[in-house]
Amino acid sequence: MSTRIEILTMCMVWDKLHGKVLLMNRPDRKGFPGYIAPGGKVDYPESIVDGAMREVEEETGLKVTEITYKGLDEFCDPEQGLRYMVFNYLATAFEGELLQNPPEGELIWIPLEQALNLPMQDWFAERFPRFFNEGTFERSVIWEKSTGQTLKETFKVYSDKVLQ
């Protein structure tokens, strides 16, 4: 069986000055309904970080000017030969105006401490705090889509303490 790899990004946009994050309310017809950070597929041959910044601009109208890599969420399904990799970023500086008619769903700025009260997918609620924690993370899940069963999960947080 051949392996198929899909590379995606997710980028949390954080207005630190006002203590708010930008989320979009994805409708059911788009998949993953509920509130979520901007993101999507990386176009070949663009770099992963360029893909993250492009997705933010396409979905929100904002141009990212400062971005930090936060970690990797990886999902593997041996039945399908699929490896689905989501590279996560935190944007802390940006310019521009929000789109009036965003393509992926309504955009809202919400205080960071209130964001988890919004309706969202369980996996996004679990990932949300990781954007704001020290260091970077790596999560790998091997699961069977047909049964919905997790076969193995690995989670690791990395710090820069080795450089100190």
Rank of each mutant, 00 (worst) to 15 (best):
residue 154 T to L: 14
residue 143 W to P: 00
residue 146 S to W: 06
residue 136 T to S: 07
residue 161 K to I: 15
residue 129 P to W: 07
residue 113 E to W: 00
residue 119 P to R: 02
residue 162 V to W: 13
residue 151 L to R: 03
residue 132 F to L: 15
residue 152 K to N: 11
residue 150 T to Q: 01
residue 146 S to L: 03
residue 111 P to Y: 03
residue 163 L to S: 12
residue 163 L to Q: 08
residue 106 E to W: 15
residue 157 V to E: 10
residue 138 E to V: 13
residue 160 D to I: 11
residue 136 T to I: 06
residue 144 E to S: 02
residue 145 K to E: 01
residue 135 G to H: 03
residue 133 N to W: 04
residue 147 T to L: 01
residue 117 N to G: 04
residue 150 T to C: 02
residue 155 F to C: 04
residue 118 L to V: 06
residue 108 I to A: 11
residue 126 E to G: 09
residue 134 E to K: 07
residue 144 E to H: 01
residue 157 V to K: 15
residue 142 I to N: 01
residue 116 L to M: 12
residue 119 P to M: 04
residue 124 F to M: 11
residue 124 F to A: 14
residue 157 V to H: 13
residue 160 D to V: 08
residue 116 L to G: 15
residue 121 Q to C: 15
residue 147 T to F: 00
residue 159 S to R: 02
residue 109 W to E: 07
residue 116 L to P: 11
residue 116 L to C: 10
residue 160 D to H: 13
residue 121 Q to W: 04
residue 130 R to W: 05
residue 152 K to A: 07
residue 158 Y to S: 15
residue 128 F to Y: 09
residue 118 L to K: 03
residue 127 R to G: 06
residue 127 R to T: 07
residue 141 V to C: 01
residue 107 L to Q: 07
residue 147 T to I: 01
residue 154 T to G: 09
residue 163 L to G: 15
residue 161 K to T: 11
residue 142 I to H: 02
residue 150 T to R: 00
residue 148 G to S: 06
residue 108 I to W: 03
residue 161 K to L: 15
residue 113 E to H: 00
residue 132 F to I: 14
residue 142 I to M: 01
residue 117 N to P: 05
residue 108 I to H: 06
residue 110 I to K: 09
residue 143 W to K: 02
residue 135 G to T: 05
residue 113 E to P: 01
residue 128 F to V: 11
residue 115 A to L: 05
residue 133 N to D: 14
residue 133 N to T: 13
residue 151 L to S: 03
residue 134 E to Y: 08
residue 114 Q to P: 03
residue 134 E to T: 10
residue 163 L to E: 09
residue 111 P to I: 04
residue 136 T to F: 04
residue 161 K to Q: 11
residue 127 R to Y: 07
residue 134 E to Q: 13
residue 145 K to Y: 01
residue 149 Q to T: 02
residue 112 L to S: 10
residue 128 F to D: 15
residue 110 I to H: 03
residue 133 N to P: 12
residue 158 Y to H: 11
residue 116 L to F: 06
residue 108 I to N: 11
residue 160 D to W: 06
residue 123 W to Y: 10
residue 135 G to V: 04
residue 158 Y to F: 12
residue 160 D to K: 11
residue 122 D to Y: 10
residue 112 L to C: 09
residue 109 W to Y: 09
residue 155 F to I: 10
residue 131 F to A: 05
residue 160 D to L: 12
residue 143 W to G: 00
residue 112 L to Y: 10
residue 133 N to C: 15
residue 106 E to D: 05
residue 122 D to H: 10
residue 132 F to N: 11
residue 149 Q to A: 02
residue 106 E to M: 04
residue 149 Q to W: 07
residue 114 Q to M: 10
residue 108 I to D: 15
residue 144 E to P: 00
residue 115 A to P: 02
residue 132 F to Q: 12
residue 114 Q to R: 10
residue 152 K to P: 06
residue 111 P to L: 04
residue 146 S to F: 02
residue 120 M to N: 09
residue 164 Q to I: 13
residue 124 F to Y: 13
residue 125 A to T: 08
residue 109 W to H: 07
residue 109 W to G: 14
residue 132 F to Y: 11
residue 163 L to Y: 08
residue 127 R to L: 11
residue 112 L to A: 12
residue 130 R to T: 03
residue 144 E to M: 01
residue 146 S to G: 03
